[in-house]
Design a protein around this nucleic acid. Sequence first.
DNA 1: TTTCCGTTCATACCAAAGGTTGATTTGATG
DNA 2: CATCAAATCAACCTTTGGTATGAACGGAAA
Lengths: 157, 157
Amino acid sequence: MASNFLKGKKHIIIYGISLAILLVLLNWLKLRLVIIDHAFEVYNGAIALIFTGIGIWVALKLAKPKEKIVVIEKEVMVEKNVGFTMNETELNRLNLSKRELEVLQLMAQGLSNQEIADRLFLSLSTVKTHANNLFDKMGVERRTQAINQAKQLGIIP
Amino acid sequence: MASNFLKGKKHIIIYGISLAILLVLLNWLKLRLVIIDHAFEVYNGAIALIFTGIGIWVALKLAKPKEKIVVIEKEVMVEKNVGFTMNETELNRLNLSKRELEVLQLMAQGLSNQEIADRLFLSLSTVKTHANNLFDKMGVERRTQAINQAKQLGIIP
DNA sequence: TTTCCGTTCATACCAAAGGTTGATTTGATG
DNA sequence: CATCAAATCAACCTTTGGTATGAACGGAAA
């Protein structure tokens, strides 16, 4: 029994000490009230009250607090294009090849054909070819138009 | 005292009834154990245990549940360009003139210098001048860079 | 009034972009 | 294997864009 008590938590130890003190107190009460009429009942009532209090105290200390979950919905504004998702439909419609798309994306960032060629390890000629092919597919005549249309179609952020 | 008990809640009444039953039980126990050695201590221990249990029970029943507030964030999509508001701060910083801004906006729509000239009833030379001035002010070298930067700064939809 | 800035335009030159044709290689597809 | 699309590059040419310089005009500020 003693080992069990020692194994418990701090609360259990405190409870044990309190119990000991109370038992002493009760013993004293017993001696004091032994000559009084109905002393036995008064004594039992005191014990009942005190231990009820102890029980309440122990319960409040040890019991997991009941949780009442209050749900508050909070609306958060999110910009639609924060996570840019490519418009696959339009992209497929245009039928751009991998390289053409890459060139288009770099164009939109303001790079010149020569810079795009350097970036993709291509010759200027190749970039021009890709550019012209994608202009044809998009039905435009200038890179600025291609950029403008690509942004509106959601092909580019 | 009795009126106080009646004023309470259902739990209090149940507690009262339990108490009465227990008192009867205890009285019976007292009669049974009165002949046993240390009957008094056993009896008191029983009372202590029982009322501790009652206290715990009462505490658990009556304890106010702690409120746990859970905030659920609900995402609301907002179209990026539904209400385009020009970034006045950046616009002032760049110190673009009226004409330069007009040229920039038409550039962003994919128009050539000649088309811009026709649209604004200007000569090609004038458009070129405005273009170069705004390139200087924006610190760029190509129209595509100007467009890209202007969009990022929120000067253009 | 003078000065400054924006606007307008011209000329000239060079760089970049755009367009065309043709050729080669490579990987996938039937 | 034959074929086709994608990708690569070259050569050539035209158009457009960008830079530099200069000049004229008008309005606003010093």
